[in-house]
Simulated assay, not measured.
Amino acid sequence: MTETIHPMNITIFGATGRVGQALLTEALNREHEITAVVRDVSRLKLEHERLHVVQGDILDPESVEKHAKGREAVISAYGPKFGMEEELLEAARSLVEGVRRAGTKRLLIVGGAGSLITDEGVRLMDTPSFPAEFYPLARAHADAYEIYSQSGLEWTYLSPAAVLEEGRRSGNFRIGIDRLITDEIGSSRITIGDLAAALIDELEDPYFMGSRFTAAY
């Protein structure tokens, strides 16, 4: 017998980005009620009877509290602009404070892959082949991860594969914890659609409460 999933009332930050929009689509397809918090409501063109687009700011704990209150979970797919990587830490602190104030225990974050451990035993971001221009963002994601891990909330942090590709969900991917997942030729990749599916799977059927997980082919 297939277990019936109870539709949830959730808030999503970062809904205008590539991952955020995929999360919206995935969650709506699974009949969840969504409040999408964006700085500029005109940037989100998607319309749906279960989607409520509101103006807010992830960097403001009061705004986070307002839009998290009464929700069963908060999801963040927030990503800063290039050169403003330190905003990730500000966003992490704001999310933790606002979600705590709102009394919403569940917090799920789509973060970075840089702090995943490779087969060589070092973080991906510390390998010689890691692009130097992406190191500040990877470091900020790693520091933000530490903030979430010490939050005391029911948090879950999803690190993507090393390469995040455009593409729809297949539903076929592997799940890991702290190690970078690679295929038989050493490639680590996943589509945005499948990354979104992995996070909504975790939302509906929690397995990595208080921990990080990763998804790749």
Score class of each variant (00 low, 15 high):
Arg139Pro: 03
Gly121Tyr: 01
Ala161Met: 09
Ser149Arg: 14
Asp143Ile: 03
Leu59Met: 13
Phe134Met: 15
Ala102Ile: 06
Ile109Thr: 04
Val74Gly: 02
Ala138Ser: 13
Arg50Pro: 04
Arg50Gly: 01
Val96Tyr: 07
Gly112Asn: 05
Lys45Ser: 08
Ala132Glu: 15
Thr156Asp: 06
Arg139Ala: 12
Lys81Asn: 14
Ser42Glu: 12
Gln55Asn: 11
Pro131Tyr: 08
Gly79Met: 12
Ile109Leu: 08
Gln150Ile: 04
Tyr135Gln: 15
Ile75Lys: 13
Ala77Trp: 03
Pro61Ala: 03
Ala132Gly: 02
Thr118Asp: 06
Arg106Gln: 12
Ala73Cys: 08
Pro80Thr: 10
Gly114Pro: 02
Ser129Cys: 02
Arg100Trp: 02
Val64Gly: 13
Tyr145Thr: 10
Arg139Ser: 03
Glu120Asp: 14
Phe130Asp: 07
Thr156Ser: 13
Val54Thr: 13
Gly111Ala: 10
Ala113Val: 09
Leu153Ser: 00
Phe82Arg: 15
Gly114Ala: 15
Arg139Leu: 12
Leu59Arg: 12
Gly114Leu: 05
Gly79Phe: 08
Pro136Gly: 10
Ile75Gln: 11
Pro160Asn: 00
Leu95Trp: 03
Asp60Val: 01
Leu108Ala: 01
Leu107Asp: 13
Asp40Pro: 02
Arg43Ile: 05
Glu133Tyr: 11
Ile147His: 12
Leu89Cys: 07
Trp155Asn: 06
Ala161Val: 04
Arg93Ser: 06
Ser151Phe: 05
Ala138Asn: 06
Trp155Met: 08
Tyr145Arg: 14
Leu46Cys: 06
Arg39Asn: 08
Val53Asp: 01
Gly70Ala: 00
Phe82Ile: 14
Val96Leu: 11
Val110Ala: 10
Asp119Glu: 15
Leu88Tyr: 07
Val54Tyr: 01
Phe130Arg: 14
Asp143Met: 06
Val53Leu: 03
His48Gln: 03
Asp126Glu: 14
Arg93Ile: 04
Trp155His: 06
Ala161Phe: 04
Leu153Met: 12
Thr104Asp: 02
Val53Cys: 07
Glu49Trp: 00
Ser159His: 02
Thr127Pro: 09
Leu108Phe: 04
Glu87Leu: 15
Val110Gln: 02
Ala132Met: 13
Ser76Leu: 04
Gln150Arg: 13
Gly83Pro: 08
Glu65Ile: 00
Glu47Pro: 05
Lys66Gly: 04
Arg39Ile: 13
Pro128Leu: 09
Ala142Lys: 14
Val110Glu: 08
Leu124Pro: 00
Gly103Met: 09
Glu85Tyr: 07
Leu153Arg: 12
Met125Tyr: 01
Ala132Ser: 14
Ala113Ile: 06
Leu124Val: 11
Ala77Phe: 05
Asp126Leu: 11
Leu95Phe: 01
Ala161Ile: 02
Gly83Gln: 12
Asp119Phe: 03
Arg50Met: 00
Val122Ala: 13
Ile147Glu: 12
Ala140Val: 08
Val122Arg: 14
Ser129Ala: 12
Gln55Tyr: 09
Glu87Ile: 07
His67Glu: 10
Glu146Ile: 03
Gly98Val: 00
Ala73Gly: 04
Ser115Tyr: 08
Val41Lys: 14
Tyr135Ser: 04
Gly152Tyr: 05
Gly111Trp: 03
Ala102Pro: 11
Glu90His: 15
Lys66Trp: 02
Arg93Lys: 15
Leu137Val: 09
